[in-house]
Structure formats: structure tokens, C-alpha cells
Amino acid sequence: MRTMGFWNNKGGTGKTSLSFQTICAFASQNPKARILVIDVCPQANLSELFLGGQEHDGGKNLLVLHGQPGRQSIGGYFQTRLPKPFDGAGIAVANYVSKPSDFNKVIPRNINLLAGDPLLELQANAISTLANTQIPGTNSWIAVVSWLRDFISSAEDDYDYCFVDMNPSFSMYTQIALAACERVVLPVTADDSSRRGIQNAMSLIFGIKLPSEIYAQHNFHTRMTDGKLPLPKIHLIVKNRLTQYIKVAKGYAAVLDGISNDVKSILSSYPAFFTFSKVKDGIKEIKDFQTSGVVAFARGAPFVSMVSGTLSVASQRVKVNKDQLDENRAIVSDLAKSLW
């Protein structure tokens, strides 16, 4: 199974809406592909989108999954691993996975979901404690960081592609998610904090430019390497939410150029950490989705199946322009084709 993650340790980059639209576009382009979406985020915003969004009871539908016996979510799965953290055998994948199109008819039928769960925050301390437990003959950190790898391995015969959405953090459950990914899409916006976010991401995942050698022995990169687990590779850096105009505004251009230059420098020094060899092949520019994006987010509607016209959002009637919707559909379609 091919596994792709969406992550940035900085919030506000539009990751959730971008991943939702891109995954649905990919599923639409590949109708015979069996797709698993894993939401490793306590806010579970992506899950709510798949389950209907604000307008179609996405939050209530998520609670339905949480109320199932054993809890049909990532939190339910982790809950079963806590008593036996070092044994990944016999995982009943189907107990935790749902089909979002049963709740939200506009979602492609070939997508299944391991929903997000606020329980992750409560589980985080226990998971971290287990990962750092000293047991002779057992690499506890590797065993715990492999929880999602175990789940995906158990689902290998049932799915072709897996997409993992992660929240903007580097908590233990985020590391569990990253450890399961072959590739990572890194969304950024046109601001200096996003530029620093790329540098931080490279430090967190690959141990590049750590402030002190003290951090090296406990770094994600070092622990993954020592445990002989493969590191994910940066596959795309998506400059997201750009100005709606055809040319990027001058106020953003310098920052965006700075991001490209930073990537070029890191790529030159550490090519093994990327799937691309030229910066132009690894950077995508995405314009702001504007009104149609807001409506899509509220209604849990992917562009691939969304219709234009006047639609309801929060008891208001909002007009979605056809040309704008068609343009957004083309943008995410192009991005989806670049995932593999």
C-alpha cells in the first residue's frame, strides 16, 4: 500500500481543506483504487468534512462513530494498543474503519476512513510514557511509533492507497503518523512563519540544523534510523492560499521566493530526503479557493462532485460561481495527479 501524509507543524496553512479536496480528486481520478484515509488529529476536522461538514451534521456523525462499540476511530484503535503496546498482531482493521459516503453522499465511494478523535490528547501522555519505557531486549520507542504501521500492514490486502492527515504538532501521535508515511506533502502559506515552518519540519523529521548535539540522540531521525525504519520523504511543498489574482502579489513574492530558495539549499545538501531532484518539480502553487472553498468546507463537499449555483451555508444563501468552481476543480485535479 502506498502511504502519503499531509503535515506541517505550523497551523493555518489550509492543510485540512487542501488534503480533503486533493484526496477526493485522487479518488475520483482512480475509481477502482481502494483508498484509506487516516485522520491522526484530535480536532478531527478532516473527518467532519468527510462525514458531512457543518451543514450536513459532520460533527454529529463523528460522534456516532465515537459511540460505536470499541470506538470506531483512531482513538479506539490506540485504546486497544495501550494495554498491549508491543504486540501488533491480530488487528481487526474493519472494527475501526467507516465509509464516509454512507453519511455524506458526495464523497467518492472508494474512500474509507479511520476517523480522528479528541481522545488522542488524553492518550498522548500514556503513549509517550510507553514509548520511553526501558525493557531489556525491546526497543519500546520503535514498537510504539510503529502502531500505525501495524494498522496499515494489517489493511494491506484491502487497500491500495493510504492518506494520513496530521495536526500541526510533533507530539508522539504525530510521530506515529509520520513513521507510517512513505511521502509527505508540506503545505505552506506566504508568510515568514511558514518559511520557518519548513526549516522546523526538516529539523524535526531529519535532524537538520539542530541547535545542539544534545538533541541528536533523541531526535526522530536518529531513533528511526537506529530502529531500521525508513524515514518519509518530502514529496511536494504546496504554496497554498495564494492571492486570487493571476500573478502573486509583490508583498507575498519575496517570501515565496525565499521558501523556494530555502528548499533549493536543503535539496542540494540533503537530496535523499526528497522524492524530487529539481525544486520546480517539488513545488506547487495553489490559489485561494475563495467563495467556493468556503462553501465546500461548510457543506463537506469536494469540488469533484460540488455543483455551482446558490447553496445554503449557515442558513444563508451563497452563490457559487461556475467558473470559479471549475478553476478550483482543475487546480486540485492537477495536484492529485502529482501525488504518485
Rank of each mutant, 00 (worst) to 15 (best):
T3Q: 10
G5Y: 05
K10H: 06
S19C: 11
S19A: 14
S19Q: 09
T22D: 04
C24L: 07
A25M: 03
Q29T: 04
I38C: 10
P42D: 01
Q43T: 03
L46H: 03
F50M: 12
L51P: 00
G58A: 07
G59K: 13
N61I: 04
V64T: 15
Q72N: 10
S73P: 05
S73A: 11
I74Q: 05
G75V: 04
G76R: 03
F78G: 11
L82Y: 11
D87K: 14
I91W: 08
V97N: 00
S98R: 03
N104M: 02
N104K: 03
R109D: 11
L113D: 05
A115S: 11
D117F: 07
P118K: 01
P118R: 00
E121G: 13
L122Y: 07
A124D: 12
N125P: 06
N125Y: 09
T133W: 08
T133K: 15
N139E: 00
W141A: 10
I142K: 09
R149W: 06
I152N: 10
A155N: 08
D158H: 12
Y159Q: 09
D160Y: 06
Y161I: 11
V164I: 15
S171H: 06
S171R: 02
T174R: 02
A180N: 00
V184H: 06
V184I: 15
L186T: 13
P187A: 00
D191M: 01
S194W: 06
R195E: 13
A201I: 02
F206K: 02
L210R: 07
S212E: 11
F220I: 03
T222F: 06
T225V: 09
G227A: 05
G227I: 04
K228Y: 01
L231Q: 05
H235S: 14
L236N: 10
N240V: 07
N240D: 04
A249I: 12
A249H: 13
D257N: 14
I259C: 02
D262M: 08
D262A: 07
V263R: 09
K264F: 07
L267V: 06
F274P: 10
F276P: 04
K278H: 08
V279W: 06
I286R: 11
S292W: 06
G293S: 11
F297Q: 03
F297D: 02
A298M: 05
R299K: 09
G300F: 00
A301L: 01
A301R: 00
V304P: 02
V307S: 08
G309F: 00
V313C: 05
Q316D: 14
R317M: 13
K319A: 09
V320K: 10
N321R: 05
V332G: 01
S333L: 04
S333V: 00
L335R: 06
